[in-house]
Amino acid sequence: MGSAERLSATPVTLVTGFLGAGKTTLVNHILAEAAGRRVGVIENEFGDLGIDSELIAAPSNTVFALNEGCVCCSVQSDLVAVFEGLAGQRQFFDHIVIEASGLADPGPVMQAFERSQLGSAFRLDGVVTVVDAQHVEQDIEDVQVCAEQITYADLLVLNKADKLSESRIRALEARLERLNPIAHRLRSIHARVPVEKILQIGVREFEEAGQAGRAFPRAHGAHRHDDSITSVAVQADGDIDLDSLDRWLGFLVRREDMDLLRMKGLLAVPGQARRFVFHGVRDVVDVIPGPPWGVELRANRAVFIGRGLDDEQLRRGFLACLESSGGLQGQGRSR
């Protein structure tokens, strides 16, 4: 594809980063500050309950959910199918953002754009990796894909920078530069960075290098996930008791027989017209107010990702936090 054709193709930004880094927060920031751009979002989650897709602040007809796997492997064909469908709707979108699962390797996703049927209509503008400044060093040691996400990035967003001292931030930036010396870096709080720096990576590279396009990574052998990492999904109607949930989550993160990497969920709280959102990254858990329920049925949904997870124990523990168990049904699923 020539330079002119490539720049006329619809740009795509791949947002990646390990579990809990702040990818959805960044995507919502992009949507809020898009300055008239019509942005479509492809949302990928590892578990079989789509939590993040419900937290995206965009019309439902512009958000495409891919659950039960990662776009880099088990649902890659679904990703291609979504783009094939979007090819006939390109006039409605100025930019596409893919939010990959926190366990996704960016390499195979990038290679998907080498397919002729995608490359003629869409171009990968850039890869943005959100880095959790508070936990990334432990994540790199624990899970190989975290380092791979950093290595493939065109731009590293060093999120939660306010949680570290200046000396620790500088040391972390030095380590990130060793992992990826060519990526630009931005510090952020709540993933707030200039949107132009996110959505115009390819244009900037074109201006700087005098040519369009980007180098795709070559296949480096069969990609496979750390099979010890699984997810458990639980859902239940009714209202949740926040005090009970707080005590139970505190107990969970202190358990030594389960290594919880990530928790997230939507909660129905008694007397509240809005849903509550809870996020947990390792031993840090936050519960914050979210958007109103509207006409949607009030319900509680949670996904737990980690090692050594006990499906039944997590299901029972979550259901025990309901304000009343009478007549309520919950369902737990693992993968």
Rank of each mutant, 00 (worst) to 15 (best):
G20E: 09
S53R: 14
Q331G: 12
I51N: 09
S74A: 10
K197H: 15
Q117L: 08
S8C: 08
G126A: 08
K163A: 15
H184F: 08
G306S: 01
L118C: 08
L260A: 10
Q76E: 11
F206A: 11
S60Y: 10
E45I: 01
G202R: 09
I51K: 11
F216S: 00
E137W: 05
C146A: 15
G290C: 07
G36C: 00
R178L: 11
G265H: 05
T62V: 10
V145K: 05
I201S: 05
T16H: 04
T129K: 05
T151Q: 11
R262L: 01
V63E: 06
V82F: 04
L252G: 01
V109Y: 05
E141V: 08
G69T: 07
P292D: 13
S60E: 15
V284W: 14
T129Q: 07
A32C: 02
E166K: 13
G22E: 02
V136D: 10
L328G: 03
L266T: 09
R282N: 04
T16M: 00
T16Q: 02
V284Q: 15
E43T: 14
V269Q: 06
S228R: 12
S53D: 14
E256P: 00
P270Q: 04
F83I: 01
G317M: 01
T151D: 07
Q329H: 11
P106W: 05
A161N: 06
S116Y: 09
F251Q: 13
G126N: 12
N28G: 00
T151R: 09
D52S: 05
T24E: 01
H184T: 09
A65M: 07
D239R: 09
G202Q: 07
G36Y: 03
T25P: 03
E166G: 14
I140S: 05
I98E: 09
W248T: 11
A87L: 04
V128R: 08
Q91M: 07
G126K: 05
M110S: 10
V15L: 11
V71S: 08
H225F: 04
C73M: 02
K160H: 10
I140A: 11
A233E: 05
R262F: 05
M263S: 08
D237I: 04
I96C: 07
D311C: 13
L49Q: 10
I140R: 11
Q313I: 06
G20C: 04
R170C: 08
F278Q: 00
V295A: 13
G317T: 04
V143D: 13
L179G: 07
V277A: 09
D227C: 02
I30L: 07
S3H: 14
T151I: 12
D105M: 02
V12F: 06
V82S: 03
A209T: 10
R123K: 13
D257V: 00
G126L: 03
H223E: 13
R123F: 02
Y152L: 07
R274M: 04
G306D: 01
S120V: 12
F304Q: 02
D243W: 06
S101Y: 08
G308W: 01
E205M: 00
I140K: 13
